[in-house]
Every structure is written in structure tokens, then in C-alpha cells.
Design a protein around this nucleic acid. Structure first.
Length: 517
RNA sequence: GCGGGAGUAGCUCAGGGGUAGAGCAUUAGCUUCCCAAGCUAAGGGUCGCGGGUUCGAAUCCCGUUUCCCGCUCCA
């Protein structure tokens, strides 16, 4: 089967079995926004818990917080998002390529500058020791012309950027006759401003001062609470702060199902370390996080690191953990060494001293930060895609048909146990109901009596239910039921009294957490 | 945002100017079977949305929206 088809099938499966629906679907949907259904929200909760427990439960020096989506506007000035997330973009109609308008102009300016440099270089060689650079620049007609042109454009460019004057930027591109390096044409669209942060207003009387953003990442909620947590929790470096929450980005192109959504959930942990020790911890968390992913049991060969060559303005090392989806390897998690960039910035913009007094060194410093930042929705997709299997059902060498099964780790399954009377008579439903009423206090169960037993098993396979118990004619005699395992389709006979205990043991999150170590 | 393709029942799709279709799924009943596809019946769609052409539009035209592919973007 073509891999694209497989991906499509997985998306259909998500909708058909109540995992993921397009947002506001009855109104034709809303681009790049999705809702989690009855099974999807359970699975998502379980993945979230696996992450949270692996961080907060298993590490004495990591604590969790839950910061607000709204933050003081200055946070985004300090973090650099207001600048970095605000790009003037322009398209070339012939090459269909998109560029940042400011970069096109900068490139053009660089080109002029290098022409000037070349003239100077040539003259320097020609005149040797007697070369008077200043005099040459002010008299050579070619250099004078270039310089004048450069200064003119540069001044206009700076002015346009300051005033966010998109029309002037476009005019500069026209005036300088800047061409697309790809197509070589000047067939440009107008410049449009893309702000990747969503804006809204606070308060009933709105003016410019009340404009705030929906956070584009959860990390800043941790940084601005660094002092609060460190002091109130008496945290000693190295220590971490974990958080799970929604973040929002007004993506220009949002595609590939829940891989890139405009509203998404991040699970982030910022780990504060002594300056100079960041690479040690960077490598530690790289390995630690990979092991966490392995814990899903989807196949270790489906994961790989992708080290960043081009680093962000704040980072001195960065890698992604990628997962092999049917559409190729895709980034699920980023591990970044963020240096002291964020805390230093907040120190500067807030005027508050954000430092740690180290008793061993007897001095204070701004801690360095290792960030592990994972997309919950992407992880969800990796789990669904990695668990999805279409297979032939055989019994004693005889082919009985096909089934679709989600091979989810038992602790993650939306429904842990299905309780099925073999037939709808002879008092079997009543017994099954009684078991249901007892077991439902311990974990998610589902009772079903409609259709043949085989068909009910298949329905449970499709949503990843790891266990089914069937009440049959032997049950009234000896208080036993059969338990049927999703993956092997094998069955055992167990006492009704032991159902809770047996299932409880297998669905404990501990089963996953212990895999990490 | 650009280019290409697509949108008909919960799912997969047929129908290309003249009464809205199939298979599977769903619901109810029968059957009582330990691995889907036995029987009977029922429900469900103003054919993505809006406008136009036409006596008549799911079908032709225009716009729009959503999804898919490619480009682009992704600190």
C-alpha cells in the first residue's frame, strides 16, 4: 500500500472511531484546527499523564506548573517573538517562491557593498603602498555612485522598517529592480505582513495599550515563574520546571492533519543548570527523552535525532527527535540548549534580578537552560500511526478475514476492558452488567451485547481495547469468564473475582514508566 | 500565499442537465453462535457553501470555503 494511502486511512480511522474530528465540521470546518473525540481525548490524557509522570513523579528535582495563556505583552518583546514572528513576505508570481521582503533588500544592499569592496580591492592592488582609501572612495566615480545609491536605499529601508511601511518596502524592491534569484523576473505580489502570534484585547474599553497575544509557546510561562518556583520550592540547581498547555501560532501553511495546527498543546520542561555544564545536560536529556519515546513500544527504528545546523538566536545546541510517519520522518520533540538568553532578557526587560546563588561557588549567576519541548498532538499522531495495523486473521492456518487493530500500550488505551455477554439471553447480560458495575470504578470499561461476539471483538480492536472478557454459559456455573487479549487474540479463563486485579496490573502507567529506565 | 487535484449518507465511492444511488456502517427485531460480512425492517443526504445560466443544476459557469499534493514557512 502506498504510504500516502496509509496516512489517509489513519486519518479516516481517527474520525470514524471518535479519535479526532475537524473543528466545527458542520460549518465546513476551520482550517488547521481539530477536536479530540471520545476516544481521542482519553488517549491524549493518557499520553499527557505518561509525560507528566515521567518528569514530575520520577524526578525529585522537577516540579510542574500551569501558567496562563495570556501574558504581559512585554514578555514577547523580551523573548524576541514580537520581532521574529513578524515577517513581511512577498511572492514571485513566476517562480512561485516566497521571500522575506526585508531579506531581499538586505541581499541587494550586500551585493552593492561587495561591488564597492571589489573596486577598492582592485585599486589597492593597482596603487600599492601609495593607495589612499579615503580619497579613492570620495573621488572614484563608480564608487561614489554605488555609495550614494547604497546610502539612499539603506536610509529608505531603515525608515520603512521602523514605520512598518509595506508599500515603501515594495517600492524599494521596484526601484532597485530586485529580481527573483530563481526566476530572474520582477513579477512580484504586494508585500503582506504575517504575524504568527494571535492578537486579542483585554478589557471592555480597548485601545492599543490593551493588545495582548495568545502565547506562541509555553516556555515563557516557565521563565517568568523561575524566581517564584525556585524560591517557594527551595529548588537547587540543577532543577527543572515542567508544564503542559495550549499554544497558538497563526501558521501561514498548516497541513498534514494534526502535525501542524494553529492551536496545539505543548509539553515542555525547562531544566536550569550551572553555566558551563549545559552540554552535559543537553546530552543527558537527549538520551532520556529518546528512551521515553521508546517506551511507547512502537519500534525504536522509527525514531531518529536530527541535529540543527542553523541555530536559533537563543540556542547553542539543538536537536529534534523525529518519528517515522507514513509521510516521512517528522519532528515530534525539540531539545534545545537555550543558554541564559531567556532569563537574561527577562532580567533586562523587567528590571528584576533573575539569578541563582550557588553556595558551592559562593557566587550568583543566571542559570543556563536545557529545554525539552514536545508536541502533544504530534506525539498523539505518532502513537496512533505507530499502533495502527491492518492484518489477516488466521486460526489454525485457516484464514478468517482481516482486522484493523490499534496496538496501543495497555496503559494508554481509551477503553481498558470490554465486557461482553456471549449471547443476549440465558441471564448472561445480567451477569455481565453486574461485573461492569463492579469494575467501572477502577478503569474505563465498555459493555456491549449487540452483534456476534467476533464482530464485537473487532470493534474493540479498532479502538485499541487491550482486554475483553466474555460471559458465557460456564460463568453461572463456576464464576469464571474468558479474557481475550487484543494482540495475540488468545484467551484465558479467569475467575470473575480476579478481573479487576488482573487488568489493573496490566494497565498501570508504571508499566510504561519502568521502560524508560 | 501561489500552482494542481478533490469535496455526493458515518466510511469508501458511483451518477457529468430531467424523481438522490450502492456496498459497508448505524438502529430495532429474529438467530445464539468465541473471532467481521445469516435473516427482516427502519433511519440517515436541500450532492461543501453562495450566486449565475436554464423550463429544469449534484451535473455547466463564477465566486468562496475545506481537505490532499507540490512550493513556501517552521525562532
Amino acid at each position: 500500500m502506498a504510504q500516502d494511502d496509509l496516512f489517509r486511512k489513519i486519518i479516516s480511522h481517527c474520525k470514524e472511531y471518535g479519535f479526532v474530528f475537524p473543528s466545527s465540521e458542520i460549518y465546513d470546518g476551520l482550517g488547521a484546527v481539530y477536536d479530540y473525540g471520545q476516544n481521542g481525548s482519553e488517549l491524549k490524557n493518557n499520553i499527557r499523564k505518561y509525560w507528566w509522570d515521567s518528569m514530575v513523579l520520577l524526578h525529585e528535582n522537577i516540579v510542574g506548573i500551569d501558567s496562563a495563556i495570556f501574558m504581559h505583552p512585554t514578555v514577547w518583546k523580551a523573548s524576541g517573538h514580537e520581532d521574529a514572528f513578524n515577517d513581511p513576505l512577498i511572492d514571485n508570481k513566476d517562480s512561485k517562491k516566497r521571500y522575506r521582503a526585508d531579506q531581499l533588500i538586505e541581499d541587494w544592499l550586500d551585493k552593492i557593498q561587495s561591488k564597492i569592496d571589489k573596486e577598492i580591492e582592485k585599486a589597492a592592488i593597482r596603487f600599492g603602498d601609495s593607495f589612499d582609501r579615503e580619497k579613492f572612495c570620495s573621488t572614484n566615480p563608480r564608487v561614489v555612485e554605488y555609495s550614494k545609491h547604497y546610502d539612499e536605499v539603506h536610509t529608505r529601508f531603515i525608515g520603512a522598517l521602523e514605520k512598518d511601511d509595506l508599500k515603501e518596502l515594495k517600492q524599494i524592491i521596484d526601484d532597485c529592480e530586485i529580481v527573483d534569484p530563481e526566476s530572474g523576473t520582477r513579477n512580484w505580489t504586494d508585500i503582506r505582513q504575517f504575524n504568527l502570534m494571535f492578537e486579542t484585547k483585554v478589557g471592555s474599553v480597548t485601545d492599543d495599550a490593551s493588545k495582548i497575544y495568545l502565547r506562541p509557546e509555553t516556555a515563557q510561562g516557565i521563565f517568568v515563574n523561575y524566581l517564584n518556583v525556585q524560591k517557594s520550592g527551595r529548588m537547587k540547581i540543577p532543577f527543572g520546571i515542567a508544564q503542559v498547555g495550549k499554544a497558538f501560532r497563526n501558521e501561514i501553511v498548516a497541513r498534514q492533519f494534526i502535525m501542524r495546527m494553529r492551536e496545539f498543546e505543548q509539553m515542555e520542561m525547562q531544566f536550569f543548570v550551572k553555566p558551563g555544564e549545559e552540554m552535559k545536560w543537553f546530552n543527558y536529556w537527549k538520551e532520556e527523552r529518546l528512551k521515553w519515546h521508546y517506551g511507547f513500544g512502537l519500534g525504536n527504528e522509527k525514531y531518529r535525532f536530527h541535529d540543527h545546523e542553523k541555530l536559533a538566536h537563543y540556542a547553542n545546541a539543538a536537536t529534534d527527535i523525529e518519528f517515522k510517519l507514513p509521510i516521512g520522518f517528522k519532528e515530534i520533540e525539540g531539545i534545545h540548549s537555550r543558554t541564559d538568553f531567556d532569563l537574561t532578557q527577562h532580567q533586562k526587560f523587567s528590571g528584576k534580578k533573575i539569578q541563582y546563588f550557588d553556595n558551592e561557588l559562593n557566587e550568583s549567576y543566571v542559570p543556563y537552560v536545557i529545554e525539552t519541548s514536545i508536541g502533544l498532538d504530534r506525539t498523539f499522531l505518532s502513537v496512533i500511526a505507530g499502533s495502527y495495523a491492518e492484518e489477516k486473521v488466521e486460526k489454525e492456518g485457516e484464514e478468517l478475514g482481516d482486522r484493523v487493530v490499534l496496538r496501543l500500550a495497555a496503559p494508554l488505551a481509551p477503553i481498558k476492558l470490554a465486557i461482553l455477554p456471549l449471547v443476549k439471553k440465558d441471564g448472561l447480560p445480567e451477569i455481565a452488567r453486574k461485573i461492569m458495575d463492579e469494575v467501572k470504578y477502577s478503569f474505563n470499561c465498555m459493555y456491549e451485547e449487540k452483534d456476534s461476539i467476533g464482530r464485537r471483538y473487532r470493534r474493540q480492536d479498532a479502538i485499541g481495547t487491550p482486554f475483553c472478557i466474555t460471559v458465557d454459559h460456564k460463568t453461572p456455573e463456576d464464576e469464571t469468564v474468558t479474557i481475550r487479549y487484543r494482540d495475540s487474540m488468545d484467551q484465558d479463563r479467569i475467575p470473575v473475582k480476579k478481573v479487576t486485579e488482573i487488568v489493573q496490573d496490566k494497565i498501570n502507567m508504571r508499566k510504561l514508566l519502568q521502560n524508560i529506565k
